[in-house]
Design a protein around this nucleic acid. Sequence first.
DNA 1: CGTGATATTGAATTGCATCAAGCTAAGTGG
DNA 2: CCACTTAGCTTGATGCAATTCAATATCACG
Lengths: 246, 246
Amino acid sequence: MDMPLNTDSTIRDDGNPGWCAKCPARPGSFCAAVPDTHIETLERSRQTLRFNRRQMIAAQNNRATSIFNITSGVVKLSRATADGRTQIVDFRQAGDLVAFPESKRHVANAEALTNVTLCRFSRPRLARLLRAFPLLQAQLLTMSSRALTAAEDHMVLLGCKGARARVATFLLRRWRQSRRSEPGLVESVNLPMTRAELANYLGLTTETASRVMNGFAREKIVTLVSARTVDLLDLKALQVISESGR
Amino acid sequence: MDMPLNTDSTIRDDGNPGWCAKCPARPGSFCAAVPDTHIETLERSRQTLRFNRRQMIAAQNNRATSIFNITSGVVKLSRATADGRTQIVDFRQAGDLVAFPESKRHVANAEALTNVTLCRFSRPRLARLLRAFPLLQAQLLTMSSRALTAAEDHMVLLGCKGARARVATFLLRRWRQSRRSEPGLVESVNLPMTRAELANYLGLTTETASRVMNGFAREKIVTLVSARTVDLLDLKALQVISESGR
DNA sequence: CGTGATATTGAATTGCATCAAGCTAAGTGG
DNA sequence: CCACTTAGCTTGATGCAATTCAATATCACG
């Protein structure tokens, strides 16, 4: 019943000890709930997967036989609609889970937007981990709740903001996220997705997204360094625009 | 720091034993994870709250000192935006939680759209329950994941459907839900929210929502029995419309 | 029966989509 | 290394769906 994913990942099951201990994604992620003292148990339950840009990681409706914790890169989650269109529902990155372990099948497609490394936990191993470390259960709930809150934020964006506010909000969100991970390069924002993907995520067309971005550039609110890099010149202005309606 | 809720609920702390055992909302809800054999423990942790139509149940940003499990009625969850607008993010009903126990503060306003009864669990009591019945933890995760999936569904609706598709989708969703709870009255759907609320939830204006509904009525797809009741005459047509784009 | 809240309907406006070219940059293979 | 190709991005012109503004109709409730 499952559609095979023709693009296979490199499975590097490196028994490399000490990997988790120095994993930069661990704090604030799923595995943070496993105490350092039992880190070897965590490592034994885990498998490293690498995907190249544009490889599929999981397909909607396929059996979810494992859960994936992102350790680097950006993953696009999208859903197919009944009439063949597609809606991007989230971009996930280091520390995020690709899917939550509750549904037997994937509810979305997951695609690598950059080169991506993940930790894979098979269901049986995950179950054993959850039994061994009950805090993990709570951690999963926390992450799920956070994702729900983020989804609601996005519903607000889609439900009551205009094109300029949507793009401004998006740029600011990305900026805040990148600040956390790389505190240098203050005003520079990286966009691993195409304009079409950005637009789709924001409920706009490519053309509108492009026009808004270039509009911001003309107004000296941002500089379009390249298609994938934007410098934010006027955060205050972006903030104001992001809070406006349609 | 918290805004006081001027509209207080009737707290009927009925020690009424056997309440949970015959609670119609229990199957499929939060408390389903407590085994029947320990139902008295569940009852002792619980408090019944009643709210009248239009009473506030919880306010955004206020401390979330407890969690609420809806046992009857419909609750509207909405968020205030920075510029004073509002976006309704969900309508919840019997068996749903009003908020998940992970955040210290409410991320949305909760308002009763009908008379509502809830079970309140204070944080300490909830914590004790979770310790006593680890399955509850898993149940919470399941419910949170389901809510996330529903939120993503709604993002699809907001991101890539036109007004007619949005309304059709909404009517069908409500119909399916009501079928579950009251399997008589096949084609009748109850809308406890105003047109303005319905429209807001769907990312439309009152006028557009009204026009679409009356359009459906003119096309003999539905009958507007009253402002709060709609008969679905042509489910097939609604299905087709709900799957169309803009 | 009146009064305010909620719904409907109509006309005018507009923000975004759509359609249609060009343009740019990243590959690809000779 | 350079021509060729193609995917991705930008820009312009036009159309339309949904909003906005405005007025009336209907409902719910004291």
